[in-house]
Design a protein around this nucleic acid. Structure first.
Length: 116
DNA sequence: CTTTTGACTACGG
DNA sequence: TCCGTAGCCAAAA
């Protein structure tokens, strides 16, 4: 597990979120081996300029867009990108996490993290 | 090197 | 139900 860094694992996990699904910051942190490091997932994305990374599929645990604005992205962009995947995000209610949340098996996560 | 600042969230009170 | 806070850790200052 600690062959790779937290950041590297976060990147691998986010790349594995299927189109049409989302994951919360906390979920990603948890899968990356640090359940309480949700905030850092946000920080990593904030400074990331990796165009192979589907960053828009990461939202907060309430199903709402958390981004306020970074060097590379805005909340409007995120809403648009999700819309292209048929995920509608309402300003006041967000989206239904129980419907769109990515629910990988433990085995799947192990495989993703191991493949470094 | 140390300190601060967050695209977070579970838990108390 | 509604805050305040602790924990987590990458970047920037």
């Amino acid at each position: 597990m600690s062959q790779s860094t937290f950041k590297e694992r976060v990147i691998l996990i986010i790349r594995s979120i299927p189109k049409g699904h989302v994951a919360s910051y906390g979920q990603v942190a948890s899968y990356a081996g640090s359940p309480r490091a949700a905030r850092q997932v946000g920080m990593i994305l904030r400074f990331s300029n990796d165009d192979t990374l589907p960053w828009w599929r990461v939202i907060n645990n309430e199903g709402r867009i958390s981004i306020k604005g970074s060097f590379y992205a805005t909340p409007q962009m995120q809403k648009e990108l999700l819309g292209k995947e048929k995920i509608a995000v309402s300003e006041e209610f967000g989206l239904h996490m129980e419907i769109y949340r990515w629910k990988p098996t433990l085995a799947a996560i192990k495989k993703i993290v191991r493949a470094k």
